[in-house]
């Protein structure tokens, strides 16, 4: 019985993302891409919608970085490596 209670109390990793709704997040993606944007929504696959997003695409050398801006973008969950809140 006690094991059931602790399971209910325990925080899941996706709870961290829930706290970041409507906040700026940093997302690292496959294919040497990174994205920063305001988190509008997400699901259990880590599919997410970011607004005012900036995408950084890194080339072979550190200097060549392509920057793309988009007003609203949907990111498919399977390309996500990590998500972190941006501290200001």
């Amino acid at each position: 019985m006690s094991s059931v209670q602790t399971a209910a109390q325990q925080e899941e990793p996706l709870d961290l993302i829930r706290y970041q709704l409507d906040e700026m997040v940093f997302v690292k993606l496959r294919g040497a891409r990174e994205m920063k944007g305001k988190l509008q929504g997400y699901d259990s696959h880590c599919n997410m919608v970011l607004s005012d997003a900036t995408e950084f695409i890194y080339g072979d050398r550190k200097e060549d970085v392509k920057v793309k801006e988009s007003e609203m973008v949907f990111v498919r969950g399977d390309s996500i490596i990590l998500i972190s809140p941006i501290e200001e």
């Binding site: 990793p13 996706l14 961290l16 998500i83 972190s84």
Partner: peptide, 24 residues
């Protein structure tokens, strides 16, 4: 997983640090 005060190491060099990080 969620790691608190995480550091990223690329080829054994510390490259970045995060307060909280969610890793898929």
């Amino acid at each position: 997983v969620v790691l608190r005060s995480a550091k990223e190491y690329v080829e054994d060099f510390e490259s970045k640090s995060f307060g909280d990080v969610f890793i898929r």
